[in-house]
Amino acid sequence: MESYRERLWPAPWIGLIAALAIPASLLTFAPISVLVGGIVGTALALGVIAAAVASAPIIIVADGMLRAGSARVPLSLVGETTVARGDEARLARGQQLDARAHLVLRPDVAPVLRIDLTDPDDPAPYWLVSTRRPEELAAAIAAAPRT
């Protein structure tokens, strides 16, 4: 049974940026054909949006496991969690980041949750996960049964 599920959808402004491919293609292909430029620009914009949606990671707490993107860890190996927003999140992603940490980050999702691992054999000391609801994710991890 899932106690938490979140898909990190891309922000709406990603679609606006992708739409800039249309006028760029129109300008590029204008000497050849405006129609071709419009078709190529639309295809490029839709491709960028499709790639952003397809690459959106899912975070799930269920069945004694934490899944973030393609990685998963048993909740029995999860230690403390720390919510970071604003400047704290920026520092956690940058100056304070351990190069060994497992990252599931979206540039358009500012808050992060640091999830410490207690497995001495795991080379990653913690996971750093982007989430729009870090307090809810931390609560779901804390409340989930450890198996």
Rank of each mutant, 00 (worst) to 15 (best):
M1W: 10
Y4Q: 09
L8D: 01
W9L: 13
W9C: 07
W13S: 14
I14D: 00
I14L: 06
G15P: 06
L16E: 08
L16A: 14
A18R: 03
A18V: 13
A19K: 11
L20T: 12
A21W: 03
I22R: 02
I22T: 00
S25Y: 01
L26Y: 00
L26E: 03
F29E: 03
P31K: 12
I32A: 14
V36F: 03
V36I: 15
G38H: 07
G38C: 11
G38Q: 08
I39C: 05
V40D: 07
L44Y: 05
G47L: 10
A51F: 11
V53M: 12
I60G: 00
V61W: 04
A62I: 01
M65E: 15
M65C: 05
A68D: 06
G69D: 09
G69E: 07
A71N: 09
R72G: 04
V73Y: 02
V73P: 00
P74E: 15
S76W: 04
G79N: 11
E80D: 14
T81N: 05
T81K: 02
R85S: 11
D87M: 03
E88F: 03
E88I: 04
A89T: 05
R90Q: 06
L91G: 00
G94Q: 12
Q95W: 06
D98F: 01
A99S: 13
A99N: 01
R100G: 08
R100S: 09
H102V: 07
L103P: 10
V104N: 02
L105D: 01
R106I: 11
P107D: 13
D108Y: 15
A110W: 03
P111A: 02
P111Q: 03
V112E: 00
V112Y: 02
R114N: 06
L117W: 10
T118K: 13
T118N: 14
T118R: 15
P120D: 13
D122C: 14
P125R: 15
W127V: 01
W127H: 08
L128R: 02
V129L: 03
P134G: 04
E135G: 06
E136P: 05
I141K: 01
A142S: 14
A143W: 08
A143S: 15
A144M: 08
P145Q: 14
R146Y: 09
T147R: 15
T147L: 12
